[in-house]
Design a protein around this nucleic acid. Structure first.
Lengths: 138, 138
DNA sequence: ACTAAATTTGCAACATTGATGCAACAATCT
DNA sequence: AGATTGTTGCATCAATGTTGCAAATTTAGT
């Protein structure tokens, strides 16, 4: 587990530091997506807010995590599972937000469908978020 | 134009006030979506921040405007065109964010496709945001 | 293993965004 | 017009996010 974390960091040419290890650990121990606040809480009180911000930013740039859009001004972050390389993400899966438990879940097996756009529009990346009730909340 | 604004407000059983008229006017004069900040700027310096917040909140509850999810912690708002009734939105269209001009555009004619979810998941509402380059930016 | 260079962290200070209680005010209804 | 209800603005506060800089840690070179 610890080896895996260090491996991920080195693979992305990041120096192996305490905070990065801890934050990655938190992600690996969670199935759903995490908001900035969740990470601060779960990582213990040990890290500065700024460090968490910068670490998340770095991870996102390297493609270790991806962002999930919401309509409530709270970005969520989730691990990229399928070996995202920097710049070559394929986090093309659908996200699900449960209205009951408020969890955000990556539906890794559900691919975002393509849509026909009007003349002139050139798509680059598509996000799809489904809201509803998850299996556990019924 | 002014009649239209008053009509929209009355139709949603909202009292007709200066700030609401002005903010609706701003929306009607824009084709794309607006962030809170845009509205404050375009409405002139005349209104309190709090009023803008509350007005947007009210409009969203009534279904006059809808929210557009983003990954950059900035909610955008756009007019609901197809006669959304309170609780009966059909803002089921795709949104487009241009990476060049940074505009957010409602593709009113592009409907969000349905996707098959894993067992147990019950969908309620789906958001779809496409990023890329719009027609005018090429 | 030790040192120098390069990164990373934490702190302080600040900017922005959003929420709430309350008094003053304006709009609606009769 | 007058009473009632709803709306606005102000002051205040909390949460969230950003930046510059010095200290500490990591990495790489020898």
């Amino acid at each position: 587990m610890n080896d895996e974390i260090i491996h991920i960091l080195k693979q992305n040419s990041l120096s192996v530091t305490g905070s990065r290890q801890k934050i990655l650990e938190v992600f690996l121990a969670t199935d759903g997506a995490l908001a900035h606040t969740d990470i601060e809480k779960r990582a213990g009180e040990s890290f500065d807010r700024v460090t968490v911000y910068r670490t998340l930013q770095t991870f996102a740039e390297k493609g270790i995590i991806h962002l999930i859009p919401t309509t409530d001004n709270s970005i969520k972050y989730a691990l990229c599972k399928n070996d995202c390389a920097p710049g070559h993400h394929h986090d093309d899966h659908v996200h699900f937000i449960c209205g009951e438990c408020e969890k955000t879940i990556c539906l890794d097996n559900v691919t975002v469908p393509e849509v026909k756009l009007p003349e002139g529009f050139i798509p680059n990346h598509t996000e799809m978020v489904v809201k509803g009730v998850c299996g556990e909340c019924r």
